[in-house]
Computed example of a mutant assay.
Amino acid sequence: MMRSVVLLLLGAHLAYAGTHSLKYFYTAVSGDIDFPEFTTVGLVDEGPFMYFDSNAMKAVPKTEWMRQSVGADYWDSETQTSIGNHQNFKNNIQIAKERFNQSKGVHTYQQMYGCEWDDQTGAKDAFLQYGYHGEDFVSLDFKEMRFISPVQQASISVQKWNNDRGKIEGHRNYFSTVCIEWLQKYVDYGKSSLQRKVSPQVSLLQKSSSSSVTCHATGFYPSGVTISWMKNGQEHHEDVDVGELLPNEDGTFQKTSTIRVSPEEWKNNQFRCVVEHQGETKEEEEIRTNGGDSLPIMPIVAVLIAVVLLIAIGAIGFVVYKKKQGFKPVSGSDDGSNSSAHPQA
């Protein structure tokens, strides 16, 4: 589900042991908002490795391993591709606004696409999704190889794209072969960083004695983590809100789980937060922070998106270069750009 206005979080494809993911996020924004009109972000294993926005108009690496692995031609190509995508997405957000009969206010049009690969089993997966106003708009059903949508306003796009069987086959080849090849290449580029394991630091945080209690896990890598609560030795799921996975500036991740419980219930029962990561379990039952600053959560947009946008985790988006230079989208979109990963609506 897409529930973020700026960071596109279309589904949770986390990088558990053995599984690697490559994602690209795009976000177009219109209206009176202090945010770039267009952003693109690429992520490997949920961490941003490149970023572009329409203010700076320049694609840049977000990791040292990308700086060292590719040359200036790569970034020049990515910059030109993102500039083209900027105009394409400006057109798409206008089309979406017309279909929803909207003209005023802040609006967003987003896309997320990419693939996953398990380096132990060889299993593959792919995803291509669009969102408008933080809600699902169009997605590609890879089992049926056809576009689907939960909203009537997208019916024109769905019919148009499904009638172009050549483009559909291009998607099939791209996501099953090309995307996986470049995911494997990027994993090799960053293997010293991407294959590291860092255990989480776990704390229980509370603003006041009557506030909810938050279990905060941070500084862990890779991103796959599970946070659960125990009450008197039994699993407890009531009144629990699990937060989104967020990136830290150093490439690690953080996540929270908040439980709503009265001071009396907390005092009269034994509550424990259990964090599982890479086969290791950490537990915490003592509140270490009481009153004071908010949680030290890094906004995804600052890193990246991050996304997730996005995210995005930096911020959101991408399309990449010639096949020998990077992750190559399928060719030939409706408006003449060099990628059909984001055709005109």
Rank of each mutant, 00 (worst) to 15 (best):
K160G: 01
A96C: 10
S228V: 13
L205Y: 14
P36Q: 10
S199I: 01
V6R: 07
H133G: 14
A302S: 06
L7T: 02
V275E: 06
M57R: 14
S223G: 14
D118K: 12
A341S: 14
V330W: 05
T19D: 13
R165Y: 08
H216W: 15
Y130E: 11
H342V: 12
D141K: 06
M298Y: 03
A12M: 01
G219I: 04
S211K: 07
L204V: 03
A56W: 05
N101S: 13
N268L: 12
K324P: 00
V242P: 00
G114T: 04
F220Y: 15
V202E: 05
G219S: 07
D73Y: 04
H216I: 00
V261W: 07
H236V: 03
Q102I: 08
Q110F: 00
N92C: 11
I33D: 01
S69R: 12
S208T: 15
W75P: 00
Y16K: 14
K324G: 01
M66L: 15
G292Y: 08
K160E: 13
S331C: 02
K143L: 05
Q184R: 13
M50Q: 10
Y189N: 10
M66E: 11
R260M: 07
S339Q: 09
S208D: 15
S209T: 14
V301A: 05
V307C: 01
L128V: 01
C115Y: 00
D125E: 07
P263W: 12
E238V: 09
E181Q: 14
V178K: 09
Y109Q: 02
C215R: 03
S103H: 04
A341Y: 06
L245A: 07
R3F: 06
K58M: 09
N269Y: 10
A28F: 03
S199D: 14
M298N: 11
V330L: 07
S333D: 15
L8M: 03
D73N: 10
F127R: 07
F89H: 15
E284N: 11
H277D: 08
H171N: 10
I316R: 03
P329L: 10
V320E: 11
D241K: 13
V240R: 06
V261Y: 03
